[in-house]
Amino acid sequence: MTGTVHRRESGVTDQGFSADEIDTSRPHPARMYDFYLGGRDNYQVDREAAAGVVRQIPEILTAARMNRAFLERAVRSVVESGVRQIIDVGTGIPTSPNPHEIARGVAPDVKVAYVDNDPIVASHAGARLTGTPDTGFALADIRKPETILEHPAVRELIDFDRPVALLLVAVLHFVRDDEGPAGIVATLAEALPPGSRLVLSHATSDFHPDGMPEVLKIYKNATATLNPRPHADVLPLFDGFRLLEPGLVQVPLWRPDGPPPPAGELGRIGFYGGVGVKE
Rank of each mutant, 00 (worst) to 15 (best):
F241K: 13
R128T: 00
E59W: 15
I87D: 02
L198V: 02
P209Y: 03
K217W: 04
S77K: 07
F35M: 14
R26W: 11
V45F: 12
G3Q: 00
E59T: 13
I142N: 03
D109Q: 07
A153W: 00
Y272F: 09
K111D: 01
Y219H: 04
A63N: 08
P261A: 12
E279A: 15
M32D: 12
A140M: 12
L244Q: 13
A69R: 06
V45S: 10
Q15L: 12
A138S: 11
I86V: 14
E156Y: 09
G92W: 03
L157I: 06
R65P: 01
G92M: 04
V112C: 08
F35D: 12
R47V: 08
P97W: 03
R40W: 09
I86Q: 14
V110L: 07
E101N: 02
P252I: 14
Y43D: 08
F241M: 04
P260L: 00
P163G: 11
I148D: 07
L244F: 04
R8E: 12
N117S: 09
R268V: 07
P262M: 10
G258T: 11
I158A: 03
L192W: 05
V5Q: 08
R255T: 00
R55A: 14
P193E: 04
M66H: 15
A140I: 15
D178W: 11
S18D: 07
Y43N: 10
L172T: 06
E179I: 10
D257Q: 01
D233T: 11
S81P: 07
G195S: 11
L235R: 15
G105I: 00
T204C: 06
I269Q: 09
G82S: 10
G195Q: 06
D239G: 09
V45M: 00
L37Q: 12
A107Y: 01
A165M: 00
L243E: 06
G105R: 05
I102A: 05
R26G: 02
M1A: 11
I148F: 06
P163H: 14
G211A: 14
G3Y: 01
V54R: 14
F70K: 03
R255V: 11
V12P: 03
A63P: 11
A63Q: 04
V171F: 12
G247I: 07
L266V: 09
V75M: 07
L149G: 03
R197N: 15
A113F: 01
E59M: 14
S205K: 15
G211E: 02
M32C: 13
L129W: 00
P27T: 01
L139R: 03
D14W: 06
D177G: 05
Y33I: 03
L129N: 02
L200D: 07
A125G: 04
E265P: 08
V171E: 07
G92S: 08
H231L: 14
A69Q: 07
A191V: 06
G274D: 04
V249P: 04
L61M: 11
I22S: 10
L243A: 01
T132R: 15
S77Q: 09
H6T: 02
R40T: 12
F174V: 01
V169H: 13
A140E: 07
Y219I: 05
K278W: 15
I158P: 01
